[in-house]
Every structure is written in C-alpha cells, then in structure tokens.
Design a protein around this nucleic acid. Structure first.
Length: 874
RNA sequence: GGUCGCAUGGCUCAGCUGGUUAGAGCGUCGCAUUCACAUUGCGAAGGUCCCUGGUUCGAAUCCAGGUGCGACCACCA
C-alpha cells in the first residue's frame, strides 16, 4: 500500500469491478445468494437529469444521499433497485439546439423543417446523454444500468401513449379553448410552473377610453385595452354604482369597443381609479371574470406577439402598439396620469421573454374531475389525501404544507406544447373525426396532432414507466412499486413531485413513493447561488479528479441537513480528502500489526480493548439508526469522530504499547470499513481488496456485538467506556493544575489504572501515548491527598491515586436526581390537571380538594429542593 | 400581500422529545517531527447560544412579541 491514498489510481477500476459483478442489479444479487428471493425490497428511481445538463453539485448531493441508502440497504440484505435514466427535457433541449443552429448555421428550426430539425436534436441528445451517464458513473452511484431508461425511448413512448389514451378515455384529458401562457419566442404554451415572475419597473397609465366615456381606468399595458370588453369595479365602490350593468359603445383610439360595466370582489378600490379594464383574452384573471359574467372574449394578440383585428394597430408588435396607443391617447388628451410602479412581469423560465396570455385550443389534464377508478374522487383530491394521510411523508415535514398549498390551488394542467422535440400527442384527425390511441388509425387521410407533450407528463410517469408499465403484470412493477423514496431538490415539489403523485394515482391507483427527501441548494462559500454567468460554480468532476469521489461526496453530506441550503467550498472537499487518507493509513497500520483474517468475535483483554469495543458497538448502533432516520450528516460526523479521535488518536497509540492487538484491530477495521462504505465507497472497497476480501459492497452490515458474559457479570460501577473517559478527564485536570507544580519535562510519565478490581496495568513508563507525551507539569500532591484505589498514576516512580468511585457516584447521583425530578413533576402535573377539572372540584368533598391542593404545594416544594440539589452537584 | 425557514466562538454548521462544564470542522496562535499518516501529531486562545418578556425547580432548546436576513408562492390591473 502506498503511503498516501490516491483516489485517481483506484476509482475507475473499482467502479468497473462493481459493474461487472452485476450486484447493482437485484436479480443478480438474488441469483448469487447475496439477498433472499423474497427479501424486502428497497427501490428508488433516480430523478433523471436533463440531457442538456452537465453534472452539477446538486446532482452529486442527490446521488450521494441516495447511494448511501442504496448501499446501506443492500448490505442489510434488502433487494435494492435503483434505476438510472435521463430526461429528454423537451423544450429545454429544443432551445439549446435552436440556439446552436442559429449560431453555427444562422438557421431557424423552420428553415430545416420538422424532420431534419429532429435529426439535429437527436444527434445532440445522443452525445450529451452519453456524457451525463459517464459523469453519473464517476460519482460511484450503485445504479442498475441494465434497467437504464430515457424519458423518450421506445418503451417510455409506448407507456406515455398508453397513459394518454387511458386518460383521454376516462375524460381526464380533454381539448379546450382556454387562456394559456404563451411564449412568443419559444412559440409554445407553458405551464404555470414554467412561468417565472420578475419584479420590474413599470409605468402605470391612467386614461379614459374616449372623451364621452364617464370614467378612467389604470393599466400598465395600454395596448391590451384594445381587447377590452368590460370594466370591472368593486361592488362596494359607491363611485361607480350608477354605471354597473350598463353597456357603452366607445371609440378607443379609432377602434370601436363595446364595454359593459360589471362588478367583481377582486377589484381593489384603492388601486388606480378603482376601475379595471377587462381584457378577457389576454389575462387569466380577466378571463375568469368574463366567464362569470358572460362577457365576450376578443383575441387581439396572436401567437407571434402581434396585434390583430384592431384597425390601424393591426400588425404591430406588442411594444410598438403600446407606443402607438399612448401617442394616440396623448393626442386625444385622454391620458390623465403616468406613474412609476413596481410590477411583476411574467417571463418564460427558459428564455426570459415576457409571456403573453392568450386564448388557444390546447390539451389539458382535468385535475378536478371525479373519477370512478379513484372512488369518485378527483386526482387533486387523491393527491391531497396521500399527503394528509401520511402515506407520503416529506423530509423535512414542513414541505408537506408547501405541497398541499400548491395542490389545493391547482388548475387544469395544459400539457400540449407547440414544439417539435418530445412525445408527439397520440391523437389523429381527419376532418371532424378524432382518434386517440397508441398506433395511427387505419385508413387514409389521418393526420397526427403536431404538438408534443409537456416534458413533465413523461417524467411524471417515471416511477412506473421504468418498471414495465403499461404492462400492469410486469414483475418489476409488482415488486418495486411504490418506490421507497424520492430524493430531490425542494424547488421541484410543484413541478415534478406533484405530477408524479397524480400520474401514479391515475395509472395504478397507488402512490409513487413513500418518502420524499428534499435536499437544499448547493451554494458557494459566500452563500450565493452558483451560476455560470457569475463563474462561482464548482465543477464536481474537477473536484472528483482532484480530490476523489469519496471526498467530494462526503463534503456534500456532512453539514447538510434536509431542506436547508448548504455552502460548498474547495477547502471542505480537501478536508475529506485528508480524512480518506487517514482511513487509508489506519488500514496500513493495522496491516503492519500482522492482522489475522476475518474474525467473528474478539475478546477484549485490557481496559482499552473493552473501551474501544464498547465504543464501536455504540457507533454501529448510532450510525445504523441515523441512516434509517435520514440523518446522514450526523451519521457521518459520528463515524468520523470515532475513526479519527478515538480509534486513530487513542486506541492505535495504545496498541503500540500494549501490543498484540492484531486481532482486535483487524476486527475494528473491518467493521468501520463496512460502516464507511455507503459514505465513501471507493476508498473502503480499495482497502477491503487489499485485505484480500471478496467485495465490501455486498458484505453484511455490522450488527452490535453481544456483550460477553464476563463483562456483564462484573457488577463494578465502572464500565469500560466511562472509566476510559474518566482517565481522559484526569489527564486534562492534571494539565490544568500544572501552573502550581513543576515537574521536570525530561522525566517520563506513565499511568497505571486499577478501576475497582477489574483492570490491571494500562501503560507503564511510556512517553508516546496521546496526552501524556509531553506532560510538563503535574499536581502530584493534590491528587495524592485523596488516596483511593481506583486510578493510580505512576509519575517517575511515584504512585498517584484518584478517587474514581467518587466521580462515578456523582454521576449516579445526578442521574438519580433527574429521574426523581421527572417523577415528581409527572405527579405534580397530574395533580394540577385534576384540580383544573371542574367536575372534580365541584363534586368532591372540600376536604379532599384541600388535601390535593396541599399535596400539590408539597410536590412543588420538593421539586424546588431537588432542583437545587441537582444544581449544587454541578 | 400570503406562507415558510434561519439567527450558536473569526468562518461553516451540529445540538432529537427542556437537565453533564454548549459541541465539531476549518481558521488563528504555540509546540513537536526519522514512529501508519505533514493530506500528520499534541496543546491553547476564542461563545451574554439576536433582543425582550413568559412558562418551569431548571431554557440555546418550549411560548409570545420584536429586530435582522433568506426562500417560496400570489391574478393588484
């Protein structure tokens, strides 16, 4: 073994070894007897990275957390399935290719035509997909590559078509003419979640439609007012009461409008003039008002973002029209006011172009429709129920609320997109006839809908489209669905998590996953979002190349708690690189101690043995529990603390003196390698291989060693753990007294221990043990003034004794007091409750009530006393 | 506007259901060095646990209010 661990030398080889073993695939594990055929399953789908992405730190967090669980449960004998895949990211991918095309060949997708353009996209896809998969493998993810999926591969296409047809037949999918979010640049609809709001400076204009119109309105978008068909006022607004219900014919800058005055509670009396021009075709809110009041919908902006059907303004772009309208209004002296305000502008999340809401014929998923297969409930109802009932648990829990809030406000989901890359909608038209199905209908003249599906439609099916759906009898689907866990970022709850729940409920009447673990965002060391433009991003692959995968993963696990953002810096990664090296060197040392091969059990001989094995036991228990509870950071810290500060710093040092600890050292090393493996798979597997063992990845997870009968028989008040801890304390206290007494620093110092009757000599006349090595000063007399045969120090031939039983008694006493306090408190609380009960007080005889009151006062007094006693012990 | 989160040594954070002397890593300072490891070891300094009030024998922890950050959602045109 080299002096220093160089991850680059081993990682690729190790990953290859894992892959070739086939153990990432649970079927192989069953076949080879790694786990039982009927073992409990543990299944997870990898949130498929967009193929447009390069691997970023967020992905590594996701992989690291999931891989910990996958490896942990695999070692615990579960049938673990973790499915990899990638997402075609319809619109995002298309945009990237379009940009490239424009830059390289100065062409648009329309220049190429649909077919040729898609060839371009697929070329791009194949390349980037290979890249991201290669990168995923570099993270050490124990993914079952034999089941790799792509949201747009053949099997997923089949699944999506089947799902669409199924939903159409149930009436959940319908086609409707509705207001949608339209991106004039991408030339497609967007779902509500694909629209972002940016606060912008805007101007609020106040004007009247015409001279003869009785009052003015305020707007930031005068050009849309050409499409107004009503004015809404608050029903409580006295100023406008007399106009409500009336219709007016007006000439608005040369365009004739019919305006009806209606009321709506949503109108803010104090905003602007308190009168809102209603443009039903180009505002979601206005559309709803128009629906309620039976007002005409007049579309004046087309898909190109140009005005239509508005006389002289026709053909102008939105911004041009705004100018033109304002000039005209000014000319007519109708403009009353122009104010600066802050306004939330809706923009496309993909290209930042302002969104134009406009009416369009699109496909929708009805979220409120009651369905037979869901017991007369709607998708929305069931999706809410799943979280409320606790069937789906969020970690951290507070995100349940976010999920529910969003779900409750959910509108029908527009799923058609006017782009070319994606799942083409499986609907065919011929004249008035419509056919929905998986294959094109027979006969001539049918034409498929040219739109494609929102990318979240196919990724919403991810938990089951990867398991054999639409074949409901598929083995994988039966064994592994619902999945155990979804690990993802909290920013994606609405976009993805909610869709998965609804899709799964519809397709299988079953939730897609039992737990949702949400990690936070990875920020730079100043707490800023990492972004390409700022150049503050950390490239995980660079870090992996420089410090190793294990270190990179650990740095993202430790100090990272669910739902909270985490800061990242290169120094942190370097710290864990150092730790990996420490582990490596522990192994080298153990190796040098002529270790024996694998031992089932080990017998402690000295106090230090008992101590270290007892601590190891505790660590096994804590780490196991913490992984099960998703406390990865804590588990990692506990392990690191034990490995470095207890094992390496103390026990290894002691073993240099006490000697002959090869067996125990070997046993401890094997155990911690197993415990470390889910966190740092590469270095642990490498060390394991050096120890001439088979494969750590599929070894058995350690269990707590049963206490040997000898130890339990000892009724001594000192356990190995506490006595060792006390010794450490004593060493510290000796140091704290050194100012009072001087000892020749050249003289050697040793420690002998006889705690109770159970321990013999620990060390003698040595100067290398941690903490004792350079003890310059020591208070001999002060410690010797209390001669008790618990702990004895030998300092340069002089024996020193310390009263250990006293220390222990103090601890015991504290514990006893705390228990008593708890009991008394419980008693006092019950009395209080009784006395607060009106029934009791009125019915029971006065004497009894008095007696109870007295008891309560006494209990309170006692509590006070006990509390003081506890304090005095400190 | 609504909702949620955060505030602990110079920095980044732990601290579960209230009870050892409030912890860790990094950083700082001092010391060591042919020893498994300089990607090292030993040690030191450094904290009114944001403020105020309340509950309690006891509060970093629970409650209320305040202050300061941050995030998300939202149809104020």
């Amino acid at each position: 073994m080299d002096k220093v661990y160089e991850p680059q030398k081993y990682e690729d080889e190790i990953y290859k070894k894992w892959e070739e073993s086939g153990f990432f695939n649970p079927d192989v594990c069953v076949e080879k007897g790694i786990c039982k055929k009927d073992a409990k399953t543990f299944s997870i789908v990898l949130p498929p990275p967009n193929i447009t992405d390069k691997l970023h730190l967020g992905h590594v967090v996701m992989v690291a957390i999931t891989d910990i669980l996958a490896r942990f449960y695999r070692m615990k004998g579960r049938r673990v399935l973790w499915i990899p895949g990638t997402d075609h990211a319809a619109l995002a991918s298309q945009n990237v290719v379009e940009k490239k095309l424009l830059k390289e060949k100065n062409q648009t997708r329309h220049d190429l035509g649909r077919k040729k353009f898609l060839v371009e996209v697929w070329q791009f896809v194949n390349k980037t997909q290979a890249t991201i998969i290669h990168q995923l493998k570099k993270t050490g993810a124990s993914l079952d590559w034999s089941r790799e999926a792509f949201t747009l591969d053949e099997r997923r296409q089949e699944a999506v078509k089947g799902m669409f047809a199924d939903m159409y037949n149930e009436g959940v999918i319908y086609r409707g003419y509705r207001i949608v979010n339209w991106c004039p640049r991408c030339h497609t609809t967007l779902s509500d979640d694909e629209v972002e709001h940016e606060e912008k400076d805007a101007k609020l204009y106040t004007f009247s439609y015409a001279k003869d119109f009785p009052f003015a309105i305020s707007t930031t978008r005068p050009e849309t007012k050409l499409g107004d068909t009503a004015i809404a006022v608050n029903p409580k607004d006295e100023r406008y009461k007399k106009y409500v219900g009336k219709s007016y014919q007006v000439d608005f800058c040369g365009v004739p409008l019919t305006i009806k005055v209606i009321t709506d509670n949503g109108v803010d009396i104090d905003f602007g003039t308190g009168a809102l021009g209603v443009t039903p075709a180009h505002s979601m809110v206005d559309y709803e008002m128009a629906q309620k009041n039976g007002i005409e919908i007049k579309k004046i902006i087309n898909e190109e973002g140009k005005l239509v059907g508005v006389g002289k303004f026709s053909g102008l772009s939105v911004t041009e029209a705004r100018e033109a309208v304002l000039i005209d209004l000014d000319k007519r002296e109708l403009l009353e006011k122009e104010e600066d305000i802050k306004n939330n502008l809706a923009v496309c999340s993909r290209c930042d172009t302002p969104i134009e809401p406009l009416p369009s014929k699109q496909w929708f998923v009805a979220v409120d429709k009651k369905l037979k297969r869901l017991g007369g409930k709607s998708l929305k109802d069931k999706a809410i129920e799943a979280a409320v009932s606790g069937k789906i648990k969020f970690v951290p829990e507070r995100f349940t609320k976010r999920y529910l809030d969003w779900m409750k406000n959910l509108h029908d989901w527009c799923i058609s997109r006017q782009i070319w890359f994606g799942h083409q909608i499986p609907v065919w038209y011929k004249g008035e006839d419509v056919f929905v199905g998986i294959e094109a209908p027979r006969g001539e003249g049918w034409e498929q809908d040219s739109d494609v599906l929102d990318t979240w439609f196919s990724s919403g099916m991810w938990t089951f489209s990867t398991l054999g759906y639409p074949d409901l009898k598929a083995g994988d689907l039966k064994s592994y669905h619902p999945t155990q866990l979804l690990e993802t970022g909290y920013e994606i709850i609405t976009l993805w998590v909610s869709r998965m729940v609804m899709m799964s409920l519809f397709a299988l009447q079953e939730i897609p996953f039992k737990n949702v673990y949400l990690h936070g965002m990875v920020l730079d060391k100043n707490g800023k979002k990492m972004s390409k433009s700022k150049g503050n991003g950390i490239d995980p692959l660079e870090m992996i190349a420089k410090y190793g995968t294990d270190a990179t993963r650990m740095s993202l696990i430790v100090g990272n708690t669910p739902g909270n953002d985490t800061r990242m810096s290169e120094e942190k990664i370097a710290d864990f690189r150092n730790f990996a090296n420490k582990l490596w060197n522990i192994a080298r040392f153990v190796d040098s101690q002529k270790s024996v091969k694998s031992l089932k059990s080990v017998k402690p001989k000295t106090l230090s043995d008992k101590w270290v094995l007892a601590r190891l036991n505790e660590i096994i228990k804590e780490v196991t529990e913490n992984i099960e509870k998703f406390n990865f950071s804590l588990a990692g810290e506990q392990l690191r603390d034990f490995t470095w500060n207890e094992l390496a710093d103390w026990y290894l040092e002691i073993s240099k003196i006490e000697k002959d600890k090869g067996e125990i050292l070997n046993y401890i090393l094997e155990t911690i390698l197993k415990l470390w493996h889910p966190f740092m798979p590469f270095v642990t597997e490498t060390i394991w291989a050096n120890m001439e063992h088979d494969m750590l990845m599929v070894s058995k997870w350690p269990t707590v060693i049963a206490r040997s009968p000898q130890t339990t028989k000892q009724s001594s008040s000192l356990t190995a753990v506490s006595s060792f801890a006390i010794i450490q304390n004593i060493i510290t206290s000796i140091r704290s007294l050194r100012a009072d007494y001087k000892i020749d620093p050249a003289k050697k110092l040793g420690v002998a221990i006889s705690a109770g009757k159970m321990v013999g000599l620990l060390m003698e006349n040595v100067d290398v043990v941690k903490g004792l090595a350079r003890l310059e000063d020591c208070s001999i007399e002060r410690l010797a003034a209390k001669p008790v045969d618990s702990v004895g120090f030998v300092v340069d031939g002089v024996e020193v004794f310390v009263d250990l039983s006293g220390v222990v008694d103090l601890k015991k006493e504290k514990f006893r007091l705390q228990t008593e306090i708890a009991e008394v408190k419980k008693y006092a609380d019950s009395l209080e409750k009784k006395l607060a009960n009106k029934d009791f007080v009125s019915r029971a005889p006065a004497s009894v009530v008095e007696a109870e009151k007295k008891k309560l006062v006494e209990a309170r007094l006692k509590l006070e006393k006990l509390g003081e006693q506890l304090k005095s012990l400190k």
